[in-house]
Design a protein around this nucleic acid. Structure first.
Lengths: 214, 214
DNA sequence: TGTACATCAGTGAACGCGCGTTCACTGATGTAC
DNA sequence: TGTACATCAGTGAACGCGCGTTCACTGATGTAC
């Protein structure tokens, strides 16, 4: 109807963002090409002028997600130099991201991605890996600075870090917001911190205790 | 055809188990009433003799899952009396469960459950909560026995425990089995253990350090 | 112990809905001369 | 600067597929007399 034309590049961005917002507000189930199109005042078929198909839109969402995750890392790096504090802030930002875009976790595990062709899964995997890589880098910088234990393997810690809110996020999601995600994040952080912080105020016990039950 | 009759109770169990196995082997996408029925030599419509619809089958799967999770708890309790060792073994069993029934995690976050009516989500939530409740009980018994720190809140620790493999499981899933889940579980456990173990071999530092950044 | 009837699991055809995708078109925008 | 043509975003109708579900039926199993 009265929809004015836009060049493809601008539309692509607009469509991807609309799709992400749709997921955020309504969940994966509502991610239909008809819904996406309607959301920006287009007719479903118009979407095919800019994307090969629904799959391509999902790819665009993944890229948006990658950008958001890495932006969080960049932000906490700018805010403080203390690696432990960087991790703590990143955790809170991550929780906020998950709360805002509830459904993102579901998208990643949905048929659109996890149940799709290997190429698609690889794309999602690479996004997660890029994020983990940055987290691990923070951990390593903490080890270098002597505030994080050396015997806590950085990659392992990064995955744990991710898991710290992931299970909470799922519970939060299932409970319909009842489960106190932010509280879990805060108290989880305290416990987590304890597991990686360097104990320079005592004997070098960390190493011995950690190797005890391999 | 030559399919012999069975009473409903037996069929119900058979159908639920077939559905679970289907998810295990092929993922949520393959969870179609046609596929389930074919898997046990029935015609799709026959399934409606025993279940009100597909939703009811999903409910049955959830119950099966609850049983498997609680069975793991019971098993580790029988194997050892040491709470820390119980947790470690439970973790390994959990990893095994997830590897065997890959797709269970996806089922929980799929449209069939997470995207469904609140009643359905509550059912899944209650399964997870029951499991978490048992894990927290183990943690508390560890605190009572003095092998787990008292200032690590049991419920928080339980959620962390769940998250310890959950993020790993997702990575494992996305990478198509490439990501070393069991290795992650083992090294993750070492770090996690460090965060909850009571430090009776030094001063009572744990309390002070943990409260530092609330 | 045999006959008659009710119950109930299994069948197969068909329906219907949701949804992604296609296609011939229209009308606006930008460009060459 | 105006005209003619190519390009391209947006339209709406229609298609087609997958899949859950319904329904009238058949034939076996179990039970009452």
């Amino acid at each position: 109807m009265g929809t004015e034309k836009m060049n493809t590049e601008a539309r692509r961005r607009q469509i991807a963002e609309a799709a992400l917002e749709l997921i955020a507000r309504q969940g994966v189930k509502e991610l239909r090409v008809a819904a996406i199109a309607r959301h920006i005042g287009l007719v479903p078929s118009a979407l095919y002028r800019h994307f090969r198909g629904k799959d391509a839109v999902v790819d665009a969402i993944l890229e948006l997600l990658r950008a958001r995750l890495l932006a969080n890392v960049a932000a906490v790096r700018a805010e403080t130099d203390d690696p432990l504090e960087q991790l703590r802030r990143l955790l809170l930002r991550h929780v906020e991201l998950i709360c805002t875009y509830q459904g993102i976790l579901r998208l990643i595990l949905s048929d659109e991605i996890a149940g799709a062709a290997p190429i698609r899964r690889r794309a999602a995997y690479s996004v997660l890996q890029a994020y983990l890589h940055e987290v691990a880098a923070i951990v390593r910088s903490g080890q270098k600075a002597g505030v994080i234990r050396h015997n806590a393997e950085a990659d392992t810690v990064a995955v744990m870090f991710l898991g710290l809110i992931q299970s909470g996020a799922i519970l939060w999601h299932m409970s319909g917001g009842l489960f106190g995600l932010e509280k879990q994040a805060r108290s989880g952080w305290r416990v987590f911190r304890e597991s990686i912080v360097a104990r320079d105020d005592g004997a070098r016990r960390g190493k011995k205790a950690a190797g005890r039950d391999t």
